[in-house]
Nucleic acid binder design. Structure first.
Lengths: 211, 211
DNA sequence: ATTCTCTGCAAGTAAGTACTTGCATGCCGA
DNA sequence: TCGGCATGCAAGTACTTACTTGCAGAGAAT
């Protein structure tokens, strides 16, 4: 990591640097592993996509597991829970829309990693310290926690009924199935306007479909 | 396929027969591919699990794709739509429970194949005639179609409101996320009594959570 | 100018995996 | 009793893939 060196780089717009190479590799790895999965992604394809020699990958990360760990750390940022909380207006429909929008955005961005997390299985021998699947769920889980607390408050005020945990699970399930169905059932009527779909889910969630 | 021979087998309880070994292979392949996926499943592991020599697999199915096709055909039976239709009582809550129960059962049984269908990608070259992922969704899609027609009728009578297609999608999404969350979030409170959970989903779906 | 670091390149190793083949054996039907 | 069929077994082929290594060149820092 030359980043920590005391001497600054000569010009900021260096054509190439170890850190830049490393970054290109991680980005390429994320792309390839999103499509082929941790196992299906080959170091060769990652190298090609990064425009880098295969040996360079191993010089940077040691082995394949090293790339996986780097990808997991690089692409699973924590959510700024503060930013969400400040946007809440008090109107349930609008608050759920805001929370749902953030949740949906995150899930869309982490779509591929979440998909792979549902089939991922690490053999009991070399348990990875950082599981891609676990990392992918960090942000959605954090948001669900906020959701649960929100539901809990609204139940206390008598605006909602039921169990906060189950309610937040159902709400997250609606967003989850929306995002996950996109590949297999790409209905344009649903996915052309995701915010409208979200409003629809919220309407069903709050009011039901009985007339 | 000795099944079609004119002469009947001498005793029904044969210790071994070509058809039986074939069956054992397909069953083992389904098991292994459910865990490791189409690519991750090795012919060696399938052979071991089937208690059969690896060469026998290729004598039966030619190549790996042959096993995949056999698994896809063997484990994706069509739904008896008649059986469902006759059970409908007219009470929406009960009908949705019946439909939801069948949907949930099927999805549980096809869980692993559905999971893999969400990351499955066939390279454009050797497109398989029978895709495991497509086959896995046959039954759920059929049930969703029944659901949609049911919703459509109830909308016509004024009991439900909204668009039948979207409604059935949301309902299927509830069951879908329930089944898919089981591995990553095995909350015993939710999964110890799946029928109770289903009733909860139906309550939210029909009446909403606003008090 | 020299040294040090990063990288490309080419070759190679070891392991896994799909698939083949030839032979021996055992079981069933005729 | 005999002949065919299904299978086990062992060996082997061809390909992929993670990972290594030695060398050479290009910059950058000193």
């Amino acid at each position: 990591m030359n980043v920590m060196q005391s001497t600054p780089p000569p010009h900021e717009l260096r054509i190439s640097s170890p850190d830049l190479t490393r970054e290109r590799i991680v980005v390429a790895a994320r792309e390839v592993m999103g499509r082929k999965g941790k196992r299906g992604a080959t170091t060769r394809e990652i190298a090609e996509m990064a425009g880098v020699n295969e040996a360079t990958i191993f010089r940077h990360f040691g082995n394949k597991e090293g790339i996986v760990a780097a990808v997991a750390q690089r692409f699973c940022p924590a959510v700024e829970l503060q930013a969400i909380a400040t946007k809440l207006s008090g109107n349930i429909d609008e608050d759920l829309f805001e929370l749902g929008r953030v949740l949906m955005e995150r899930m869309e961005g982490l779509q591929d990693m979440i998909r792979w997390s549902m089939v991922e299985q690490h053999d009991p021998l070399d348990e990875p310290l950082i599981s891609l699947g676990d990392q992918a769920w960090r942000a959605p889980e954090a948001i669900q926690h906020v959701l649960m607390e929100y539901m809990s408050r609204r139940i206390a005020t008598g605006e909602l009924k039921g169990d906060a945990k189950r309610l937040s699970r159902v709400f997250m399930g609606l967003v989850f199935s929306h995002v996950m169905s996109q590949l297999k059932f790409p209905d344009p009527e649903v996915y052309a306007n995701p915010e409208a779909s979200l409003r629809f889910y919220i309407d069903v969630f709050l009011n039901g479909v009985r007339s």
